[in-house]
Design a binder for these strands. Structure first.
Lengths: 232, 232
DNA sequence: TCAAGGCGTTGACTTAGATCAATTCCAGAA
DNA sequence: TTCTGGAATTGATCTAAGTCAACGCCTTGA
């Protein structure tokens, strides 16, 4: 792989604390590939042969059953996905496709499991990473079970707003149909939810949103750190 | 703690492979307590001081926000809960209450984290356990996002049916209001969902259900191993 | 330059599911 | 035994959200 990408990977929490030689082992076994947009990288049900790391671009995790489909999450650089399947040596529970041209690092599962045995620090990092993933899904599950569609959207907007520096403006990181699926609703309903939020100072212009009354929006959204904070 | 309970705990996947002395250390630091029914053991937002193991009885995990409440899971003997919070040294994301008089083992978080460092096998077991928990929630999330209420109920009945030996009869392991909340619906709606399933051979008598036409029910439910199987 | 196709929006309508209220049916306490 | 309160069910109604169809508006590509 290109050496200019290595420091990025190394700086990931997951790989930061492990020994140099073990890191090298992993990287030498890994493949770095660039994929075109809309390519299905993995399909749910397939055995987990690789741990994936998104270096550039964007990857959508989604699930299908019985003809229906739903976006389960989005992975941006530098992030990993399907760690749990790799560690359990099980099949993937989610499919993944690129949202745009993307550079992806693929680390063979065996090597991950092998180094996990050898490297104390890596093992600890994996546990922390896994626990974080777990807690993220629990929060998403709470979000879906305890809130209406409008509330989910309002809280999501507040999150993006904070992420992007609380300037009163924000940009949606994905297109609206993906956002809708992520929030568990149809595109039509998302559009209507935006209209519902208009009286709370939410002004939509394409994928640029301005929040003219964050107070009012927060009163409606009632954000809860045990659902909305990513780092608790 | 009573020595008669020890083998049960020791036989848990999580504790099975660790060293004897480390297991003893954990158990000596632990408290075994019996709690009355409906007692709130932990509240979401509290720091994770203990890992819990249900020895007898039953514990309900639930979450609240903004006046609403939802059951997130049920823990039966012998099972653990809130491992992720303990390992991350973070706050609990869910609350827990006893469903009936229950015997619970409480292992201090510090000891868990300490032994995790020392005991290779324990670390590995923790990773497998965490990965399993993670995959369970992902499946529940898929269930909720991709299926209607009736489908969720149908698949749940099929699961209980298999769990209980496929005799054509099954017993609901919790009362109906809890089941409703677990499946993400109201008690009224659960009652109507049972009626909807009547033409598919589902006969309800209190918490005893008989499935007179498993084929037909399965055709409706369209079970998916990547959602419904607990061990994949 | 003009299609052509995809995304987003809107309107009309349907439907799944929630809410509210009333009733029945127990199981446990007096 | 009777009383009582919670669980479950049912009916009536309401509401959130999905579906279907039409349309505008871009972007892309010939």
């Amino acid at each position: 792989m290109r050496s200019s990408d290595l420091p990025q990977v190394r700086s990931l929490e997951l790989f930061k604390s492990m020994g140099d030689s073990n890191f090298d082992t992993l990287m030498q076994a890994a493949y770095l590939q660039t994929f075109p947009s809309q390519l299905e990288l993995i399909a749910e049900g397939d055995p987990a042969d690789f741990l994936y790391v998104v270096i550039e671009g964007c990857v959508e995790l989604f699930a299908r059953t019985n003809g229906r489909e739903s976006t389960m999450g989005m992975v941006h650089p530098v992030g990993t996905f399907i760690l749990a399947a790799v560690l359990k040596d099980a099949v993937y529970l989610m499919s993944a496709r690129t949202c745009r041209r993307s550079k992806v690092l693929m680390v063979p599962s065996e090597n991950i499991r092998e180094v996990f045995q050898r490297d104390e620090a890596f093992a600890r990092a994996i546990v922390v990473e896994l626990a974080s993933c777990y807690r993220t899904v629990v929060k998403e599950h709470k979000d879906l079970k305890l809130r209406t569609a409008v509330e989910r959207l309002a809280n999501r907007l507040l999150r993006y707003h904070v992420d992007q520096g609380e300037s009163g403006m924000l940009e949606l990181p994905h297109d609206k149909r993906t956002l809708a699926s992520l929030l568990g609703m149809t595109p039509e309903n998302l559009s209507r939810a935006f209209n519902t939020l208009k009286p709370y100072g939410v002004v939509v212009d394409g994928n640029r949103i301005s929040l003219d009354d964050v107070e009012a929006l927060a009163t409606l959204a009632k954000p809860n750190p045990l659902i909305d904070d990513r780092n608790t």
